[in-house]
């Protein structure tokens, strides 16, 4: 049922085309509708009329196959990490991760919990962190504009990092997920 081939980084293209592509990518960020923690509640005002993220070309998508961005909204439990890995690996390249809240950076108020991760970028590559507990919609928009800037400069390369260091990430993921039953890569 699964494709066994591991992902590869595409060959280097001409820089000028990469720049054009990045311009297009940065102006149409589509987000997977997947809320992992309390911060998902802050995304609701963001994509309704008050803060209206569609004016930046950011839209919510129902499936990872159509999306570019995964938002880790707040604390991440081990059980959710397994689903996050599945969703993240199903997103087509190039893909970006925005992590919200202090819980994703250092555990936040759940630093001593038996079930939540302390440092997120050991398990999946994070492009932009937005601090706060929880960040207000303005802060999330600021995070998005930072991500756009990074994409345009060609610096948002977490997905390449993930492919290059897949063994490192897999080792850390398997260390916390005790009932690991995922394939080598979730195409």
């Amino acid at each position: 049922m699964y494709c066994n081939k591991l992902p590869e980084i595409p060959d280097d293209r001409k820089k000028i085309w990469e720049k054009v592509d990045n311009m297009a990518r940065a102006n149409s960020l589509w987000v997977t509708a997947f809320g992992t923690g309390c911060g998902a509640i802050e995304l609701r005002p963001l994509h309704t009329s008050r803060f209206d993220m569609e004016r930046f070309g950011i839209a919510m998508r129902p499936t990872p196959r159509q999306a570019d961005v995964l938002i880790i909204s707040g604390y991440l439990a081990v059980k959710t990490l397994k689903r996050v890995i599945r969703v993240y690996e199903q997103i087509q390249d190039p893909k970006y991760i925005i992590a919200l809240g202090s819980c994703t950076m250092n555990g936040g108020m759940y630093y001593d919990s038996y079930n939540t991760l302390n440092i997120l970028d050991r398990y999946i590559p994070v492009d932009v962190y937005v601090n706060g507990c929880m960040p207000r919609p303005e802060a999330i928009i600021d995070g998005f504009s930072l991500l756009m800037k990074k994409i345009k400069e060609g610096k948002a390369e977490g997905w390449k990092n993930y492919i290059e260091n897949l063994e490192y990430y897999r080792e850390n993921q398997k260390k916390v997920i005790s009932n690991w039953d995922l394939p080598d890569y979730n195409w």
């Binding site: 950076m105 250092n106 001593d112 038996y114 079930n115 302390n118 440092i119």
Partner: peptide
């Protein structure tokens, strides 16, 4: 994990690593 003799902080540091200060 909800038993009070279970040390959550020790488990968290052992499994998820120490938090960034």
């Amino acid at each position: 994990p909800m038993r009070r003799d279970f040390d959550t902080l020790e488990y968290s540091i052992r499994t998820y690593g120490e938090r960034r200060k």
